[in-house]
Simulated assay, not measured.
Amino acid sequence: MSASRNLAGQVVVVTGAARGVGALLARKLSARGATLALVGLEPDELRGVAAALHGPAHHWHADVTDHEAMARVAGEVKDRFGKVDVVVANAGVATGGPFADSDPVAWKRVIEVNLIGGAVTGRAFLPLLTASRGYFLQIASLAAITPAPMMTAYCASKSGVEAFAHSLRAEVGHRGVRVGVGYLSWTDTDMVRGADQDDIMRELRARLPWPSNKTYPLGPAVDRIVAGIERRSAHVYGQWWLRGMQSVRGYLPGLIGTVGRREIRRFGDRLDGMRIGLVGAGGEADEKARADR
């Protein structure tokens, strides 16, 4: 385990900072003396988060999938704050439902934001992290560890960002840059509450085995992420039990394939024609931003 670092004076970039994990993470890092660069698609929300922080902060309106926009943001963060010590690639969206009936635009957008957006963020800020011998934390999910029916896009994207971060760690470690992966189970955010608005998704999640069927409070999960940033950890677990999932993950695809088939059969005709767009307030913001272009 790495020694904890004092965050005072550290410049931290957080994507998806307008709400949920990103917003609370910004507040907790600021309370520890960090300077915050907030990135997202909701300028009014970002402005409110920045205004409520304890120390220096600024916000940038940008789509994490847009390399030119993110490269511009990286340059402006450098101009304003002089350096970047930590980047948290947190921006994410989700959709659900049967793949065969899924909205192809929403499905693709989940891959774009969660996977490509993480890579674009890393590409834009890697030169600054190399200069500071900094830390890149990619937020993944329990969905990276275990597959789940009705979540094909989200599981594919989170498995992808986990693999991306692990590969990147091996490439940049000799330059002094550390790379971490953050794992969260169902945590009380707009995204999870949005998914629960669908009866089938809510019922299916309730039938998951304990402890994966619970919704966990946001505060303790973000506290664990802050501790991981302070230690520049290779793996950060938002809930205590997720660490143990690593040792059994090789058995999970077969188990989920068997149990999932039985559970999906229970819903029968209720699944016919089921189509869900991007869920939660963050999903709505993403759809609106793209419609306004």
Rank of each mutant, 00 (worst) to 15 (best):
V12R: 08
V12F: 14
V13Y: 10
V14M: 12
V14R: 12
V14Q: 07
T15L: 02
T15A: 02
G16A: 05
G16Y: 01
A17K: 07
A17Q: 09
A17I: 03
A17M: 06
A18W: 00
R19H: 08
R19I: 11
R19K: 09
G20Q: 03
G20K: 03
V21K: 10
V21E: 15
G22S: 11
G22P: 01
G22L: 03
L24P: 01
L24G: 06
L24Q: 04
L24A: 08
L24H: 10
L24M: 10
L24N: 08
L25N: 09
A26H: 06
A26W: 00
R27T: 15
K28M: 09
K28I: 05
L29Q: 03
S30E: 02
S30G: 12
S30K: 03
A31F: 05
A31D: 12
A31H: 07
A31E: 10
A31W: 03
G33M: 02
G33R: 04
A34D: 06
A34L: 11
A34K: 11
T35N: 08
T35Q: 15
T35Y: 12
T35R: 11
L36W: 06
L36D: 02
A37F: 06
A37H: 13
A37Q: 14
L38F: 02
L38A: 10
L38R: 08
V39M: 12
V39E: 03
V39C: 00
V39S: 07
G40H: 08
G40N: 14
G40P: 00
L41A: 15
L41K: 05
E42P: 03
E42K: 15
E42Q: 14
E42I: 11
P43Y: 02
P43L: 06
D44F: 02
D44K: 14
E45Y: 07
E45P: 04
E45A: 13
E45F: 05
L46A: 03
L46R: 04
L46D: 00
R47K: 14
R47A: 15
G48R: 14
G48Y: 01
V49T: 05
V49S: 02
V49D: 01
V49Q: 00
V49K: 01
V49G: 01
V49R: 00
A50I: 14
A50R: 09
A51H: 03
A51V: 04
A51L: 08
A52D: 05
A52T: 12
A52E: 15
A52F: 06
A52M: 10
A52Q: 13
A52Y: 08
L53Y: 07
L53C: 15
L53W: 13
L53K: 13
H54T: 09
H54C: 11
H54Y: 10
G55A: 10
G55C: 10
G55F: 10
G55K: 05
G55M: 07
P56W: 10
A57L: 00
A57H: 04
A57N: 07
H58W: 13
H58L: 13
